[in-house]
Design a protein around this nucleic acid. Structure first.
Length: 523
RNA sequence: GCCCCCAUCGUCUAGCGGUCCAGGACGCCGCCCUUUCAAGGCGGUAGCACGGGUUCGAACCCCGUUGGGGGCACCA
């Protein structure tokens, strides 16, 4: 079947670039620049899911790549579950990731309001037109009655509504009303196959008759998601709908609704659809709400970089090149092509997300890195925000050395904390590993003697003195020599380079820590 | 039960009928660098689910099997 509309591929010759045919589904290649309109339309309920943000990211990238518009709409039709906090949180999350919208909450636009809770008049009006034109009809059957009819016909009640009320007479309707029943509004589904060329999957087809007439408006007058979502998309002139694979089975209904909306002049045509693969967790199950990795909040909180997380998220179902997977937001926009999004589910791999993030972290200019780390150190009570001049000096000195051994910004708390507080608790595992035996006591004693006598408290001098005392005189291997000292000074087995750290820390504090660690050794 | 989607290293992927005894990345393992941990460099490990076609030729096209996932509300 044909779908006409602002976005139909046939109108655009099926090629984005005349010289290169790169798309997986060239028949659905994007139209000319400036005409694409995508949208992101979450419900403000509960936590923000990483899969949801990935959907937002792809819609955004597609719009930006095409020079089109990205529309943000809030689907808050479920008053019982929606919350203002969740709404705010959604906006914050998108902004944190670096996604901006051309139309939507706090931005406005010509097709507002952009919150469905403020659009009830629109839905009422469209529903009335649908009823009047005969595309929709009033249905009085209760679920129990539908089930009973299915069973009586020897059918599985799972088949759902049986289109029983399609041709009720006015008298019949009046009789139901006299019983006190209020009808739901159902869309009359067409008697033909419903198919479309999916932007990511190619042609998808549902056989005629496999989808029953569905409910548009509840008996109490409340419009439902399968109705309001396409109505708003039509009114907001959305051309490209990128959404989760879970919504794929509902597409035939939307196609039928679009045909009706187009017929009554509400829609200008049917948008293109692209169904994005799931983001899965352990065991290939859709990443569930209970999975800690599914909660988007944990990434900003742990100190992922927005550009690092966005980079990783866009790798879930898409790739920029066969030999590269680290790129900037600008490069994502430049290269993103929906038709090259993969079809199979992608497992969220925290290790890889961290690896990608750490690459971005190391690529940061030092001043930028320092600025981004401060809020994490401040939240841990290690520095003031803004830092005092002394703190700032230490930070700037240590930043280049810390930067290359961190994965997320919050790592700075553990890695650099020892420079900003004297309440350094030695990590128990580190203590067990490095301070366990008599060897450690000897090493610490030798280090203490050597450093107490040291006149020039600088990195080169510290290095020379410690090597002399521990490696030369004590005959320790470097690993055994410096392990306990590092642990004493920083409280950890991994720290910024030792001599530089000691220089920054100063003689007194360094010696105090060696002494404190000495009491924890075996002898 | 019905409908739909999917199937390349452990994981994310490249692959669009010959250039693939399948390339990259993460992970893992080893070596090098560093008389310090980490980082970095170098190398290694491991995969086209199975069976039939089509074709001179198939990871790639078709059919089937198996396996995985999702959807079937007066929720969104």
């Amino acid at each position: 079947m044909r779908h006409r509309g602002p976005g139909h591929a046939d109108e655009h010759g099926g090629r984005r670039r005349p010289d290169v045919d790169r798309g997986r589904h060239p028949m659905t290649a994007a139209p000319a620049a400036g005409t694409v309109r995508t949208r992101f339309c979450p419900s403000p309920t509960g936590m923000v899911h990483v899969g949801l943000i990935r959907t937002a990211l792809f819609n955004w990238a597609h719009a930006r790549h095409s020079g089109g518009a990205f529309v943000f709409r809030i689907e808050d039709t479920d008053a019982a579950r929606d919350s203002e906090a969740s709404y705010r949180h959604l906006l914050d999350s998108l902004r944190w990731l670096g996604l901006d919208w051309d139309e939507g909450p706090e931005v406005g636009g010509p097709h507002g309001p952009y919150r469905q809770s403020q659009r009830h008049d629109v839905y009422r009006e469209v529903a009335a037109k649908l009823l009047e034109s005969g595309h929709a009809y009033e249905s009085f059957s209760s679920n129990e009655e539908v089930d009973a009819r299915r069973r009586a016909a020897g059918q599985d009640p799972k088949l759902g509504y049986d289109n029983h009320d399609r041709f009720l007479t006015d008298a019949q309707k009046a009789a139901f009303r006299d019983e006190g029943r209020s009808p739901v509004l159902r869309l009359r589904m067409p008697e033909e196959d419903l198919a479309w060329t999916d932007l990511v999957r190619g042609e998808v087809r549902f056989a005629a008759g496999s989808v029953p007439d569905f409910v548009l408006v509840r008996g109490n007058g409340a419009p439902l998601y399968p109705f309001v979502n396409p109505v708003d998309d039509a009114l907001m002139q959305i051309t490209d709908v990128l959404r989760g694979e879970d919504l794929l089975p509902s597409t035939p209904r939307q196609l039928a609704l679009y045909a009706a909306l187009t017929d009554i002049g509400v829609a200008a045509g049917t948008p293109r659809f692209g169904h994005l693969p799931y983001v899965t967790g352990e065991g290939n199950k859709k990443l569930s709400k209970r999975d800690p990795q599914a909660n988007f909040d944990v990434y900003p909180e742990r100190g992922f970089l927005p550009e690092g997380l966005a980079n990783y998220l866009s790798l879930l179902g898409w790739s920029i090149a066969d030999d590269r997977d680290v790129f900037s937001m600008a490069e994502l926009v430049e290269a993103f092509d929906v038709t090259r999004v993969g079809v199979n589910p992608a497992r969220f791999d925290l290790k890889k997300a961290e690896a990608i993030n750490s690459t971005h972290l190391r690529a940061l200019p030092v001043a930028e890195f320092t600025a981004r780390v401060v809020p994490f150190l401040a939240a841990a009570g290690l520095v003031a925000d803004p830092p005092t001049p002394e703190q700032q000096a230490v930070l700037e000195a240590i930043a280049p050395l810390a930067q290359e051994r961190m994965i997320v910004l919050s790592d700075a708390v553990g890695l650099l904390g020892f420079l900003f507080t004297d309440e350094v608790a030695i990590d128990p595992a580190a203590a067990a590993k490095q301070l366990g035996g008599a060897d450690a006591a000897e090493v610490l004693d030798a280090a203490t003697r050597s450093l107490t006598a040291l006149e020039d408290w600088t990195t080169p001098a510290l290095e020379a003195a410690l090597k002399q005392a521990l490696v030369e005189e004590l005959g320790r291997k470097p690993r055994q020599a410096f392990g306990p000292v590092r642990d004493a000074v920083s409280g950890r087995t991994v720290s910024p380079p030792l001599y530089e750290s000691m220089e920054l820390l100063g003689r007194e504090r360094t010696l105090a820590r060696l002494a404190a660690a000495r009491t924890q050794t075996g002898t």
